[in-house]
Design a binder for these strands. Structure first.
Lengths: 107, 107
DNA sequence: CCCTATGTTCAACGTTTATCGAACTATTGA
DNA sequence: TCAATAGTTCGATAAACGTTGAACATAGGG
């Protein structure tokens, strides 16, 4: 179930952004992901991520703040989250570097 | 793509059995997985696993021997395969131990 | 040379999935 | 109180997925 959840590009991006917040506020609210998809689509993905235990939601007024369930995940799937995030980081690097290289060359 | 591949229970079982062969022959042939699904269904899953670079096929006579592409995977997704296999092992343990406990108690 | 065993390919199917817009709930601020 | 903001829920739709059986290819043994 967790692997299936992580295999969707939008959900992986959500998890990745949440992981980058670890050590800072550890939290992001729904609106912070508006660039990834429409609101109703995001709510769908949030529900899936919650269902399989990947994240947790805290309601504060009209906002919902979400965070990774890092400890539970590391206990049940040791090393998995780190490996996935590290791979996602490598991909993000590649995807950012390659187009820049072409744009600069075309200038 | 790799995560999507690993998120199917049959493909995960295939990868898991292949991982257990590492250090022994490192290979299994199609027929060794007949318990998991029908032949044509297995061929479909084999193709998916090959497509995303998880395994490799060697043809020998009327048999096809498959092996994990461990080195390539560890290079591109460090720690991922190990984490997934370790988690699968924990699950296999749970699934085997729980029923046995009840059978022994009912004896 | 045929027959069997091993796998793949193809077409069909039912199910699940992601996506969208519209309607809805609830909270905040004027 | 009214309007705006932040999210969720629902229904519909199109695409992708897993599964199956039948037909096909190919190698090995009698």
């Amino acid at each position: 179930m967790v692997l299936d959840c992580l295999s969707d590009p939008i959900r992986l991006a959500i998890v990745y952004q949440l992981a980058q917040q670890e050590g800072v506020s550890s939290e992001l609210c729904c609106g912070d992901f508006n660039g990834l998809a429409g609101k109703s689509n995001l709510a769908y993905h949030f529900a899936k991520l919650r269902e399989c235990g990947l994240m947790q939601t805290r309601v504060a007024g009209t906002n919902r703040f979400m965070r990774l369930r890092r400890e539970d995940l590391d206990a049940r799937f040791p090393g998995l989250l780190d490996a996935v995030i590290k791979s996602a980081a490598k991909d993000a690097e590649r995807l950012q570097l390659l187009p820049e290289g072409e744009v600069v060359a075309a200038d």
